[in-house]
Design a protein around this nucleic acid. Structure first.
Lengths: 343, 343
DNA sequence: AGGCAATTTTGAACCGTTTCATCGAGGGGG
DNA sequence: CCCCCTCGATGAAACGGTTCAAAATTGCCT
C-alpha cells in the first residue's frame, strides 16, 4: 500500500508538503496542491490512521458503549451519534456490553488502547467504583446518556423521567382507569425511581390511591416483566391498565396478553415508555411515551464535540429532554364491573 | 499517559523486554515478567494501538458494514460477529450505510485508512463497479453476508433463499390457501429472485397457478411494502394470504392490516421471512421463516479468521444456511367464499 | 577453572505521519 | 543595487511500539 513518501516522490515534492495538503494547513500553492492530489489519486493513497494518531495524539475516534444493541433505543442512538460524528469528522467505535459490567470494563480498556478522543456511555446496571476509576483513567471527555451518574462531573443527556411517568399515567387516568399496574425497573436505578415518582404524582393528583400491590419490578427486562405481568393478572383485583416503563418490558407485557388470549384494550389497556418501530403495525397500535432518541444522541455528541474543541469548560451539565406522548389505540375505557379475564 | 518506556524504566528492564511480556514471545523469565506486570499495573499502562499497528502492519480491527443497524437482522448480526471477534482478539468497527451506496463507499475509504485486517460486508443495493474496486484496494480478506456477489472470489454466507421462499409458501398452502400474495424485494437482487423461485416452486408443486398480479415489489422496505399490500387488497380477487420476504416488509404488511382494521388470520393470513424479537408478543403471534442470524455471523467471522490465519486458501467458498420455519398463529384457514374485507 | 551451547536480555532500526525550525526565492522600498 | 521581509517548501526529529541481530548470562561438561 502506498505511503506518503510514495506520493511525495511521484509528485516530486517533500513529504511535508503532502502532509500539508492533506491537512490543508500552511497554504500550499495551487500548482503543488494539484500535483499532490493527482499523485494521491493515481496511487489511490489512504493515510495510515495509526501513524497519524501516534503523532497527532488524537485518533478521530469516539467510543459509544451501549447495553444492548438489539434494543431499538440503542440502535437508534447509535445511528444518531454516528451521523452527527461523521459530520464532525469522527468515527464511532460501538461497543455492546450486553448488559454485563465485565464486558463493559473490557471495552473501556480496549477503548483506552485505541486512544479514543471522547466517550459516550449509556451505563448498564448500577454505578460501580471500578467503572468510575476506569473512566477517570481515560482522561478524556465523557458524556453519559440515559442514566446520569452523580458526582463524577460528567456531562449527561437524560429523559425527564418523572414527567414521562406522569404523562403515561395521566393518559391512562384520562381514559378512565383507576387501577393502573406499573411494571417498572429496579428502584435502585434513578431512572426507575423517577418514573415511579411520576406515576405516583399522577395518581395522587387525580385523587386516586397508590396501591403497592400494583407496583412490580420487571428489572427493565422482558422475562422478569412477563413474570411481573402474570402476578398482576393473578391479583384478586387485577388492574384495568398497565404501564411498562421501557420497551423490553412492554414486549413482555404484550406477550403475556397474547399468550392468554387477552384483548387490548378491551380486556386491559397498555402503555409503555420508548416508542417501538412497529408500534403502528400491530393491533392494537401501541400508545407510548417516546424518548427523543435522535435528539438525545445529537445532544450528547454536541456536548462531546464542544468539550473536545475546548469551547465548553467547567463542571458537567445535565441536559434533560422532554418525552413525547404518542396516543394510539392500546388504551381504551376500562370495562365496567369485573374484568372478563378474572377467574 | 504512560508509555512502554515508562514501564521499562520503572521495572528496570529494557523496552524490548516489556514488549516481549506484552506479546508473550521469546520466553521472558518469571521474575522479570512479574516485575514488568507490576510496573504496568502501577502505571495503569495501556499500549498505543496506533503505534502497534504501525509497526506490526496489522491493527486487530475488523470492519462490519451493514445497511441498517436498526433492523433486528443486522443488530443481531453485529452482536454475533462482535462476540466471535472478541473471542479471537479482534475489535469490530461497525459501519451503518443507511442503505446508501455513497455512505458505504465513504465507509470503505475510512476502513482502509484505519487499516482493518478484514471485512464483513452485507452489501446494500446492487453490485457496483465502484464498490468492487474499493474492495480490491483494501487488499484484505472480505466475507460477504446475506447477499453474495458473483465473480469476485470472496467468501460468502447466505441463506438458502429458494428454500425459505418454498417453505413459507408451502406452509400457507398447507393451511388451505390458494391465492397467496407475494411482497418481494426487487428481482434484480439475487436474494429476491431466489425467494420468488421458491414461491413459484411451491405453488406449482401443489398444482396451483402462479398469478403475476399477486406478485408485488416492495423493494425490501416498509413504505413500498405498504403500497404493495394496498394494491394486493384492491385486487378484484384479493389473496387470502400474504408472504412478505423480509422483516421490514412484514411490518409494512401488518401496518396496512392494522390501519384497515383487518384481522389476522381471520381476514387474511401473513407470513414473513426473518423472525422478529416481538413476533410472539403481538396478536396474532407471527409465523415466520427465520434466518439463523447468529450462526451466519459466526460462520462469517470463522471464514474471515481462517483467511487471516492463512489456514484457508484458494477461491472463495459460499456457505449456504438453512432457514427455519416458526409456525405460530398468523396463518389460519382461509375464509370460504368472498373475503369479508372486499368491497 | 575454562569452554561451549542454550537461553535471556537488550540496543537500535524501523513503521508512516505531523510539526517546526530553517531555508530559499521573489518582491518592494530605500 | 542591496537589504529585508514575506510566503511557500523542506529536512529532520519526534510519536510509541515491535523485531531481530547481537550481547550477556546461565548451565553443563570436561
Amino acid at each position: 500500500m502506498a505511503t506518503i513518501r510514495d506520493v511525495a516522490r511521484l509528485a516530486d515534492v517533500s513529504v511535508a508538503t503532502v502532509s500539508n495538503v492533506l491537512n490543508s494547513v500552511d497554504r500550499v500553492s495551487p500548482e503543488l496542491s494539484a500535483r499532490v492530489r493527482a499523485a494521491m489519486e493515481k496511487l489511490s493513497y489512504a493515510p495510515h490512521a495509526g501513524a497519524r494518531s501516534l503523532r497527532k495524539r488524537s485518533s478521530g475516534l469516539i467510543g459509544l458503549i451501549v447495553g444492548d444493541i438489539t434494543n431499538p433505543f440503542f440502535s437508534d442512538l447509535f445511528e444518531a451519534v454516528e451521523d452527527a460524528a461523521a459530520a464532525g469528522g469522527y468515527l464511532v467505535l460501538l461497543c455492546n456490553s450486553n448488559e454485563r459490567s465485565e464486558r463493559e470494563e473490557a471495552h473501556l480498556r480496549m477503548l483506552r488502547t485505541q486512544r479514543i478522543d471522547g466517550l459516550i456511555l449509556a451505563p448498564t446496571g448500577a454505578a460501580s467504583m471500578n467503572r468510575a476509576s476506569l473512566l477517570a483513567q481515560l482522561e478524556i471527555p465523557v458524556v453519559l446518556v440515559d442514566r446520569a451518574m452523580e458526582g463524577l462531573g460528567y456531562d449527561a443527556v437524560v429523559l425527564d423521567n418523572r414527567r414521562a411517568g406522569f404523562e403515561a399515567t395521566r393518559h391512562l387516568i384520562g381514559c378512565g382507569h383507576k387501577r393502573i399496574g406499573l411494571v417498572n425497573g429496579p428502584d435502585v436505578l434513578r431512572t426507575a425511581a423517577e418514573r415511579l415518582a411520576g406515576y405516583r404524582e399522577a395518581l395522587l393528583g387525580a385523587g386516586l390511591p397508590v396501591d403497592p400491590e400494583l407496583i412490580r419490578d420487571g428489572t427493565f427486562r422482558q422475562q422478569p416483566a412477563e413474570q411481573a405481568m402474570s402476578e398482576l393478572l393473578a391479583l384478586p383485583q387485577p388492574p384495568s391498565a398497565v404501564f411498562a416503563t421501557n420497551n423490553l418490558m412492554t414486549v413482555g407485557v404484550m406477550k403475556v396478553l397474547a399468550d392468554r388470549g387477552l384483548a387490548c384494550p378491551e380486556d386491559i389497556s397498555v402503555i409503555g415508555i420508548d416508542d417501538l418501530p412497529w408500534a403502528e403495525a400491530v393491533s392494537p397500535q401501541l400508545s407510548a411515551v417516546a424518548q427523543p432518541v435522535r435528539a438525545m444522541g445529537e445532544a450528547a455528541l454536541d456536548l462531546l464535540l464542544r468539550r473536545l474543541s475546548g469551547s465548553l469548560q467547567g463542571p458537567g451539565t445535565t441536559s434533560v429532554m422532554a418525552p413525547r406522548l404518542h396516543i394510539r389505540r392500546s388504551c381504551g375505557m376500562p370495562a365496567t364491573g369485573r374484568p372478563a379475564h378474572v377467574g
